[in-house]
Design a protein around this nucleic acid. Structure first.
Lengths: 333, 333
DNA sequence: TTGTATGCGTTATCAC
DNA sequence: GTGATAACGCATACAA
C-alpha cells in the first residue's frame, strides 16, 4: 500500500492540509508542527503522487523539449542542463522530437496542449519556426528559444558567435600568427556569417590585411575542409601559418591534409575549429576549438521557464563560451 | 475553459462513461454512438488530461530511461526508438541520467518510486548494475535491460556482436582478402572479446590461419588505431590487404596512417570499423562498418514494457545489425 | 449497449 | 496557525 498524505497526517497528528503546507513550504506553519510532519513523512517514506498533485493544482510539473537537431551531442547537453534545472524545481523533462515540417504543421498545437506541459524549450532550428511560435502563443504556452536567428522578440538563451570567433583569432595573433586562413561554414547557416564577421573583425583590429585568397568557402563538412586546405596549402612557399575553420569537422579535414603533405601540426601549421564536437578530441593532435555553453543554455532555458519570479519579457540571456586551447595550435616557426 | 470528458458527453448526448469507453477503444459501444462521441470530441477539441487519467487509473503513462553513457549518439537513438513506441501507446518518456555511483546508491529507489513510472529502461552500463536491478525488483518496477553483459536473468534487448564481426570478416574474405589485420578493443569492454571471437571464427571457417602478428591490442581510441596501423603497415613488402578495427575511432586512425604513408584506401588497403559512429561518415573515404540497431533496441525495450500482453519472463530479444559497405573497403589489388 | 456512483491523492477555499 | 470539505478530470465497479 502506498503511503498518502493522509497517512502522514495521521502519523503526525495533524490535518492533511497542514502536511500539504509543510511539503510545499508554504508560510503559516509552526516550527514544531513542521518538524513533526517532516519526521512522519520521512518515517513513512512518503512520496507525493505526481498525478494527484498535477490534477489538483492544474500544473503538470512537466516541461517539454522540442527538437529537430541532427547533432546528438548538442541535444544531449541541452537535455542535461535542462534536467538539472528541472530536478531542482521538482519538475521533469519531456522529450518531443519532431521534424521541422511537423513543427510547422497543424498537429503541434494538439500535441502540445495534450501534454499539458507548463513550459516549452525550443532548440535550433525549431527556435526560428514562426508558425510554431505563433501556435504556442495562441495556446498561452510559456516558452524559451535557444539560439534563435532573430534576437529580441522572444525570451532567448544564446551565445555570441561573433565574439567567440574574434577571440579565437585574437589568440592566434597573440601567438605570433600574421598569415591566417579562414574556412567559411555552410552559407545557409546563420552562424557562418557571424563567425566570419568575428574573424574579419579580429584581423582588422590587429591591423592585418584581409587577403581574399586566404578565405575559402566551405560547408561545415569534413571534405570541404579537405578541399579548402588543399587550396590553402598547395604552395609550400606561400602558405598561411594558421588556419581557422568554422567548425571542427572542417578543421579535422585540414589536419588530415597537413598529415598527408607532411606538414607538422602545430609546429608548421596551427589549426583550430569551432564547436568542440567529438572529433575535436578524437583525432590527433586534439583540436583547439570554441566550446559553446550548450549545457548551460539548456539549464538557463529551463530556469527561465521555472523561475516564476522572472517575468516573460523577451529577455536575452547571452552565456559565455570557452576557448579550448589544445594541441593543434602553437606559435609559428 | 478546458473541455473535459463531461463536456464531450453532453455534446454527444451520452454519459461520460461511454465517452471514456470510446476514447480508450473499449468494446461494447455501438458504432453510431462511437462516431457521435468522436465527432463531439473533435468539435470541442477535447484532450484528455494526463494527470486525471493517471490518478484514476493509478498509472502514470510514463516510462523512465535510465542512463549513464558517454556516447551521445547512442543515447539519442535509444531515446528516439523508445519515444516512437511510447507515442504509439499514449505514453511519454522521462529522462533520468545518473552516474553509476548514483545508480547503485541508496537514493535511486526513492527517485524511481517518486516518479511513479510504469516501467524502466536500463541502458549500458547501468544494465549491469546489480544493486539497481535489486532495487527495481524490491519496488516491483517492471524493467528491461538493453545489452547487459549477462543474458538470461532479466528481460533483455540486445544485438549479437560475435555474429556481426563474423559477417564483416566474411565479407572481406568474399572480396578476396586473405591477409586481414585485426585491432582489438578496450580489454575491459565485454564487446571487445565478442568482436574478436567473431573475427577469429570467420577466419577459421574460411580456412585462413590466424597470424598473431596481425592481431593488435587497442583501446577503442583513435590513437590506438594509429599505433596499431603503424605496426601493421610498417613493412610495405609484407602487410595485410585489409584491417578490421573493433570500432570506428580506431578505424579512422588506420585511415589517417594510410593517408600519411601514401597507401590508398581502399585500392591498396581496405579498412572497416564497428558501430557506425559519426566519424565513420565524417572522414573520407567513409568507413565500411557495422551499424548496431540502436534505435530499434530502444523501441523494442519500450514495447516490451508497454505490451501488457507480453509476460515478464526474462525473454531475450536479439535484434539484427547491418553491415554498411561504404568507400573504405573493396577488392584487393 | 449504456449509465450511475464512487474514489484516486492532492491542492484550494474558506472557516475557525 | 490549523482544519474540514470541496474540487480537479478521469476510470472503475456495478447496475440496468
Amino acid at each position: 500500500m502506498k503511503t498518502t498524505i493522509t497517512d502522514v497526517a495521521k502519523q503526525a497528528g495533524v490535518s492533511m492540509k497542514t502536511v500539504s503546507r509543510v511539503l510545499n513550504s508554504e508560510p503559516n506553519v509552526a516550527k514544531a508542527t513542521r518538524e513533526r510532519v517532516l519526521e512522519a513523512a520521512a518515517e513513512l517514506q512518503y512520496r507525493p503522487n505526481l498525478a494527484a498533485r498535477g490534477l489538483a493544482s492544474s500544473r503538470s510539473y512537466l516541461i517539454a523539449l522540442l527538437y529537430d537537431n541532427p547533432n546528438p551531442n548538442y541535444i544531449i547537453q541541452i537535455q542535461r542542463g535542462a534536467i538539472e534545472a528541472c530536478r531542482r524545481h521538482g519538475y521533469h523533462l519531456l522529450l518531443e522530437p519532431m521534424t521541422r515540417e511537423q513543427a510547422s504543421g497543424p498537429d503541434v498545437g494538439s500535441l502540445l496542449s495534450r501534454l499539458g506541459v507548463d513550459g516549452v524549450i525550443l532548440t535550433p532550428p525549431l527556435s526560428d519556426s514562426i508558425p510554431l511560435r505563433r501556435e504556442m502563443e495562441a495556446l498561452g504556452l510559456r516558452y524559451v528559444a535557444i539560439a534563435p536567428g532573430d534576437v529580441g522578440t522572444v525570451p532567448t538563451v544564446r551565445m555570441d558567435d561573433v565574439k567567440a570567433a574574434t577571440e579565437m583569432v585574437t589568440y592566434l595573433i597573440e601567438q605570433g600568427h600574421r598569415d591566417i586562413g579562414f574556412i567559411i561554414g555552410h552559407p545557409d547557416h546563420i552562424a557562418s556569417s557571424k563567425r566570419q564577421d568575428g574573424f574579419e573583425a579580429a584581423m582588422r583590429t590587429a591591423g592585418l590585411t584581409l587577403d581574399e585568397s586566404r578565405i575559402i568557402q566551405g560547408d561545415f563538412k569534413f571534405r570541404s575542409g579537405v578541399k579548402a586546405a588543399e587550396t590553402l596549402l598547395k604552395d609550400s612557399a606561400n602558405r598561411p601559418t594558421a588556419i581557422f575553420a568554422s567548425n571542427d569537422d572542417m578543421a579535422a579535414g585540414v589536419v588530415s591534409v597537413a598529415g598527408r603533405l607532411g606538414i607538422d601540426v602545430p609546429s608548421e601549421l596551427s589549426v583550430c575549429g569551432f564547436d568542440n564536437t567529438a572529433i575535436a578530441q578524437i583525432i590527433w593532435p586534439k583540436l583547439t576549438t570554441v566550446a559553446q555553453p550548450i549545457l548551460q543554455m539548456g539549464r538557463k532555458a529551463a530556469e527561465v521557464l521555472l523561475d516564476r519570479s522572472q517575468n516573460d519579457d523577451p529577455v536575452v540571456h547571452t552565456l559565455d563560451f570557452e576557448i579550448l586551447v589544445r594541441e593543434s595550435t602553437g606559435k609559428p616557426k
